[in-house]
Amino acid sequence: MIEVENLSKKFDNMTAVDNISFNIEEGEVFGFVGPNGAGKTTTIRMLTCLISSTSGTAKIAGYDINKKSDTLKIRKMIGLIPDNVGLYNELSAYKNLDFCGKLYGMENSKREENIKYFLKMLGIWDKKDIIVGKFSKGMKQKLAIARALIHDPEILFLDEPTANLDPSSSKTVRNFLIDLKQENKTIFINTHNFAEVQQICDKIGIMNTKLLRVSTQKDFKESIWGIKTIVQLDKVTDSVLNALNNVSFKNMSVSGDKLIFDLNDPQKENPAIINTIVNAGGRILYVTKLDPSLEDTYLKFLREEN
């Protein structure tokens, strides 16, 4: 659905985006993470045809962002939520959506139907006639999402959709995005919120001017931490440690009464490890898989990169 190849953007002498390439499949949710100034917003702006690229190409549903004749077609099929909501404070919620729907050339009946559907779904139908200037940040963000979806776009671009929202509003927005994911929408999210990425995204891209990594969350975590099993024992004894010398695994470390195994193939190695410990008289209190948070993984990754 989105194919990016060697895409770059320079502003005068400053390189904002440096030769990035990645693909996003239809129905996939892609989380773009990275520090401030990493080029995430610039990437979204190039993909939504708001600014031109300096070099490289990108195709949105087969349409080329660099081709002038394709830009209107791309804009028709995408929805954008910029980092600031970009709503008209003087207009009511209904009129904001109505204006947007008309710009996309929607038929009256479909436009009215969609406005009603989204405002009801986001719980702001009863406030449809109130001017947006009186809305809370959370309500504005919900309305910005509704605006981006009003014309039934195939692809949704969100730039920091939950920034500056309170936890409750963030959760509402997140749940809504999960619903959209189930509707098979392709979603591209720029975010600093790792809880959001962890919960919603199928794939992540780590950006710092260059695209440092693109992978699934699972692959990313495993590449940084490895596949680890933690076995908590009542007491680590020499007989247990000696017995484990005969078992095949990548590595093992001891931390108090915990044994931490670095594995290649957990399905084969875990049963062997457990059997060996039990046979050597070890008393297992619990066995867990090491599952660090995405945020910890990202920070470790950045430390290693630096």
Binding site: T48, C49, L50, L72, R75, K76, I78, L80, I81, P82, N84, V85, G86, L87, Y88, N89, C100, L103, Y104, G105, A144, R147, A148
Partner: peptide
């Protein structure tokens, strides 16, 4: 200045 230009320019208008 009111930050409404970006979504407007992202819509299919010439």
């Amino acid at each position: 200045t009111e930050k409404t230009l970006e979504p407007l320019l992202a819509s299919p208008i010439t």
